[in-house]
Design a protein around this nucleic acid. Sequence first.
DNA 1: TGGTCTCGCTTGTTTGTACAAGTTGCTCTA
DNA 2: TAGAGCAACTTGTACAAACAAGCGAGACCA
Lengths: 245, 245
Amino acid sequence: MARYEHIAGELRDAIVRGDYRIGAQLPTEAELASRFNAARGTVRQAVAVLVAEGLVGTRQGARRIVLGSERSQSFAELHSFAQWARSVGHRAGGLVLDSHRRPSTPSEAVRLAITPGEEVLSVLRLRRLDGEPVLVERTVYAGWIAPAVEKLDPACESVTQELYEAVGLVFAYGEHLIDAVAAGAEDARLLGVRRGSPLLRQRRTTTSQEGRPAECSDDRYRAGSVTFSIRNSTTANSLVRRAGD
Amino acid sequence: MARYEHIAGELRDAIVRGDYRIGAQLPTEAELASRFNAARGTVRQAVAVLVAEGLVGTRQGARRIVLGSERSQSFAELHSFAQWARSVGHRAGGLVLDSHRRPSTPSEAVRLAITPGEEVLSVLRLRRLDGEPVLVERTVYAGWIAPAVEKLDPACESVTQELYEAVGLVFAYGEHLIDAVAAGAEDARLLGVRRGSPLLRQRRTTTSQEGRPAECSDDRYRAGSVTFSIRNSTTANSLVRRAGD
DNA sequence: TGGTCTCGCTTGTTTGTACAAGTTGCTCTA
DNA sequence: TAGAGCAACTTGTACAAACAAGCGAGACCA
């Protein structure tokens, strides 16, 4: 592990453990540098990690302060329903209800950076959390990974993990659009809610390490089952609000 | 403006303008350094900004690639409805429907880091976008800024901006919880939708520069009016999904 | 008492250097 | 031809040094 990652980890542990209460000041860079026997630049790199996580606030001239004490989650936990469920101590289940190849629609072609009409794999999955159905996933996979996806067990728990183990595919970048929609007939039937009841929708496009779009998906969560949380600051944020389309 | 900010701006403009298409490679650090006549460290800092914005992906050993071409928005635009509306070319309106002081509830006291029962200011606002009502805002302000808030014009467009100009208050850090809820009777009446129809809810807590919580709010958007968008990667993300509470 | 000013402290920016580690394409070999 | 392996290239980590800029507290003055 890199030096700065180690220092960041120590500081994060201290904050999560409560050694520094919310609002308290962190030691100065100079003090941290001597404590960890590292250069000031390395310490700055470590602290930058915590700032990006939203745990620490920083202002030129003033000592850094602690803003929160909750460990934030990794990209993998955000992207993979199963890995997220495991990390928060729940059990994830899943079942493929439909899977077929078809030509891509124009909007899918744009999102997957392929030519319109090129064949894609369309999959409908129902996901459960501790046995309760909470999520309907309508995913479209680009043609080049379709064979690997089709080989997966229909009741496969973590698609992300299986794809990594099978063909070494790593999902590295993602874009997520979050809004609220009314449950359609199929949504309502699968999730066991009334038609028109509120669902939290997450439309995402995921890209491989090399920048090649691999899948795009329309995920609908039963209201109350899942909440997205973002921490941001004047110096670091990655959230955007957009006009409805 | 700092050197690295200038370089980041130039690169961002080039990407947004389309000089580098999505999936294309960015110049190497060495080339950028000589082009901008800066040290490699400075260039790295500039590129780090774009990586944090989700515009650029980076992997050790490989050239950096362009992931997106949409300018992401600032903290101010995220936090302030009016500033966001202006930046996307719409007109924001607002009206205070109710404003009164009352003792804080235990959960509010926790979120605002005050003692339970301490007086807070509770405000109900209806926000319009281009004349259409799209957002019901139920905000609770900590006692120490209540006087400044009460002095504001009820039809004030940007509360954030007015508070800055009046008392120099800067909102610097925020936490946001996003989920979907059904419209209550009051929500439905104000937004002109049916009871039980889906709303996108954003619960936020905002903190001043010094780390002092200033307000917490329950904002409900009419479905279809607003979408949140997050870009993330294995190396940088600030989004968290949480189990429903 | 109240405001201002200055000084020390702390974080932000920039440059330079050196080495580590991962990627990519080419070459060589079996 | 397929695979191993090398070599050049590119990004990541770490250190050191110097100056800029903002903050906060105490000193000082009216």
